[in-house]
Structure formats: C-alpha cells, structure tokens
Design a binder for these strands. Structure first.
Lengths: 132, 132
DNA sequence: TCTTTTTTACGAAAGGCTTCGTAGATTTCT
DNA sequence: AGAAATCTACGAAGCCTTTCGTAAAAAAGA
C-alpha cells in the first residue's frame, strides 16, 4: 500500500498572501516574495522564510533546493484555492445557497456593466449545458 | 465629545454559528442556543456560555439580565455580517473583483434554474438603477 | 428543610497562526 | 585572507480562539 497523501489544506491568511505573489510572479525566492509583500506591509525577512518553510511542509508549495537560494513554486492553483475558500464561506454562512452569496457579492463590490455582462454570459453557459 | 464606540468586529467561526441561531430563533437563552448547536456538533454548555459572554463584551449581542436566566439578542444583522465577510474574501483573494467571486460561487455550489433566474433579475435591477 | 438542578462567573489549558531573534553556513566583496 | 552580506534552520514568544473544569449563587423539587 502506498502512503496516504493527505489533501492539501487551505492556506491561512499569511500563506494566501504568499501564494498570490507566487501566482503573479511565478517561482520565486524568499527574498523576492518578501520584497513583494513588504511594499504593502513591512515585515521581517525571516517571517516570510518561516512561513514558506511551513508551506513546503504542508504541500502548499514546492521547494527547489538545487541552488543555495531555494526557489519556491506554488503547488496548488489559484482556482483550486479560490474554490475551496468560496465553498467554505458558502457552507459557513449561506447554507450552501450560491445565489445568496452572489447577491452579497454584487452588493459589496459595485458591479460594472462589463462585469454584469460577463456574469450573464456565464449563466447562459451554465443553463445551456445543464439538462436539469 | 462622546466616547468613541469602536465598530463591531466580525464574528469568529464559533461566534457566527451562535449568531445564526439567534437570527433564526430570535432572542434566546444560553440553554436554547446550546441545544440548537448540539444537534450538529456536541459541545459543552459552558462553551456556549463563555462565547456568548465574550460576544456581549464585543458588542455582537446584547444581554438582557432582567431575569436570572439571561436572554441574548443579536446586535448586528445577518446582512451586515454577510456583507463584511464577503468583502473580506473579496479583498483577500479576488482584488475586489466581484465578478471573479461570482464566477467561483457559481462553480462551487451548482446553481439551480431558480437561482439563475434570481441572479438575472438582480442584475437587471442593478443595471436599471445604475446610471454609470 | 435539605438536596438536586440550573445558571453565571472565572480561570486556564490546548492548539493554531504570526512574528521575530539568534545561530551557523555559505557566498560575495574589499 | 578577512570582513560583510546573504541565506537557511530553529526555537520560542505573543496573540487569538475554542474548549472545558470548578466554584458559587439562585431556584426548584422532594
């Protein structure tokens, strides 16, 4: 029997911030991530380092140790993480009712005409392919 | 100058669960809340009590001490809390782009024809009233 | 009355997240 | 070579959240 690889956990807040940098920049060093984060919120270098080490343990990132300065790669897609977080919120506060979440989302960030059009198109797509 | 009353903080997970009971049942005692929660997840009575005491301190609920058995009232609306949580998620993971959140929401919980219709109506409403 | 139950108050432990300081190794610069 | 900078590893503190145990007061029941 192979070892049971547990599912990758959802990132914490700080971890998510780091993943976002990796998704945007691509594989990066601790220094690069730290600098990207520091522009928004000053923080210690070793803080980023420690977090990224933890993330490697958790399987959120992959660490390339070929050179002395390690390079970190995201190991889960933005889409997967977004899906997980949205499902969480959906379950925790909206009883899984997607339309109630959408209602609030449309209320919270004001929606441009463009965005509305995109959403309509998406609805068409869903209903078109759905036989229920 | 009046004392500066700080804004009510967003509820934690356990606090949210309690608020949801209060929203559904209306003003309730610790016992009632505890029983409502215990059906889903067994937990100690004093756990609910402690949480509700903390929530009263934070201003999330109001405590009526007229009788020995205190009665707790929600002090923020479901709508306000939902708005806050959605905005959080929006900022933290979607750069404030509501349509990206909606996209994921529509993907996460599968959407019924009914829900789709509601969302369309909502979009109509927004675009109708919006002069941008 | 005396016992049992209900209720509040309080303290504190356990776990998770974030942050940082320090140490040691390696590389780079002068 | 010697000094300075860079990098990883590690431990631990501080904070927050959740959970529960214990104690004391009040009410209800026998």
């Amino acid at each position: 029997m192979g070892e049971a690889k547990d599912p990758i956990p959802s990132p914490t807040d700080a971890e998510l911030a780091i993943l976002r940098v990796l998704w945007r920049r691509g594989p990066s060093t601790v220094r690069e991530v730290h600098e990207a984060l520091s522009t928004r919120r000053p923080t210690g270098y070793t803080t980023a380092l420690k977090l990224m080490q933890i993330m490697a343990e958790k399987g959120l990132v992959l660490r390339d140790e070929a050179r002395r300065t390690h390079v970190y790669h995201p190991r889960i897609s933005a889409e997967a993480v977004e899906r997980g977080l949205v499902r969480d919120l959906l379950d925790r506060v909206f009883d899984g009712a997607a339309d109630r979440l959408v209602l609030r989302a449309l209320g919270a960030g004001r929606v441009t005409r463009d965005e509305a059009a995109k959403i309509r198109a998406l609805l068409d797509e869903i209903e078109g392919g759905d036989a229920s």
